[in-house]
Computed example of a mutant assay.
Amino acid sequence: MTKAYLRTLHGLRRDTGFALVLLVILLVVNLVLNPARFQPSAWGSLIGLAAPLIGAAVASAPVILAGRGGIDISVGPLMGFVNAIVIQLLFLKAGISSPLVIIPAALLIGAAIGAINGALTTLVRIQPIVATLGTYLVLTGVTLTILPAPIGPAPGWLKALAGPWSALPLIALFAAWWIIRRLPYYDQLMAIGSDDRAAYTAGVDVTRVRFIAYVITGVFAAVAGLMLTALIGSADPNIGQAYTLISIAAVALGGVSLAGGRGGLVGASIGAIDIFLLQSVLTAFNVSTYVLQIAYGAILVAAVILTAVQERAARGREV
């Protein structure tokens, strides 16, 4: 094994150690509480249920890695917007059902929204959370205008992507990230996330790199929106917003530093699986949605504190 691979493996263990331990604990608890649901024969349906949350967490990660408070809270509404556009405008009104049209259209929508967020934060220099909050509100309003009430169905090929086949768009996301990791852009992204002033001094175009991160997040969120559409098999104007905060909690739980420059999509996806398993445990006890919200908040705070402690310890070892 190469030294680079060993460093990557060590970094993965360090960043996702807590999330991995929690994953094992939650999996054991779920197996005890509901063994039938977690039999190997049911794994396909479980992947389908968890896929939109994993996609939302993966989509949220690139802008967070870019640093400077790059939290995009419009990921959830963008998923809902793609859901509404695909079903209401393209499929039901325009009669377009071909994946050769629907998939590129969804990706272009995601890239366009990501570019708008990127321009607001990097060119206009609005605080990321303020810029993406504005996008959040606009997308929510437009989605409700296009689609005042749930409607369906989805195209047959898209509904077929639920269940085991939902692994295909997830594989596509990780394949795209695998390619990005092998480009000079990835090193630049992590560099500006760690210290954008030092990266700028070294000749990195900080504005361009951060702008592209928002575009990547938009494209990934569009894919997550397609996975959400496949899961529910219809369009619902209110479902996307639910993924906004839990996706950020999943990213933090997965060891991605909210300050930027540390972590990755694997950790974000592990954090998302943890939250999915936690949802399953709490559902088994018939707890209310209010308790779920409390759990999400507690997870986010605990994950941020743990990440801060790890970063402080790492700096201490370097000194």
Score class of each variant (00 low, 15 high):
Trp165His: 04
Trp157Ser: 04
Ser166Met: 02
Gly156Ala: 07
Ala149Tyr: 14
Pro150Phe: 12
Leu161Asn: 12
Trp165Gln: 04
Lys159Ile: 11
Leu147Lys: 12
Thr145Glu: 15
Ala154Ile: 06
Thr145Pro: 07
Ala154Arg: 01
Ala160Glu: 14
Ala149Gln: 14
Lys159Ala: 08
Val142Leu: 05
Leu144Cys: 15
Pro164Tyr: 03
Leu144Phe: 08
Leu161His: 09
Ser166Ala: 02
Leu139Tyr: 01
Leu144Met: 15
Thr145Ser: 15
Leu144Glu: 03
Ala154Val: 06
Ala162Cys: 09
Leu168Glu: 03
Leu161Thr: 05
Pro153Met: 05
Thr145Leu: 15
Lys159Asp: 14
Leu158Asp: 05
Pro164Met: 08
Pro148Gln: 08
Trp165Asp: 08
Val142Pro: 02
Trp157Asp: 07
Pro155Ile: 04
Gly163Phe: 03
Pro153Thr: 04
Pro150Cys: 15
Gly152Cys: 13
Val142Thr: 04
Ala162Arg: 03
Pro148Asp: 04
Ser166Val: 00
Ala160Tyr: 13
Pro169Asn: 02
Leu168Cys: 04
Thr140Ser: 14
Pro169Glu: 02
Gly156Lys: 02
Ile151Met: 06
Leu161Glu: 12
Ala162His: 02
Ala160Gln: 11
Gly141Trp: 14
Gly163Arg: 00
Thr143Gly: 11
Ser166Glu: 01
Gly152His: 10
Val142Glu: 01
Leu139Asn: 00
Leu147Gln: 10
Lys159Asn: 11
Trp157Pro: 05
Leu168Val: 06
Gly152Thr: 06
Leu144Arg: 15
Gly152Asp: 13
Leu139Thr: 00
Ile146Asp: 07
Ala162Met: 14
Pro150Trp: 10
Pro150Val: 14
Ala154Trp: 05
Thr143Tyr: 03
Leu147Ser: 10
Gly163Glu: 04
Ala154Pro: 01
Pro169Gly: 00
Lys159Phe: 14
Leu168Asp: 00
Thr143Pro: 07
Leu168Gln: 00
Ala154Met: 06
Ser166Leu: 00
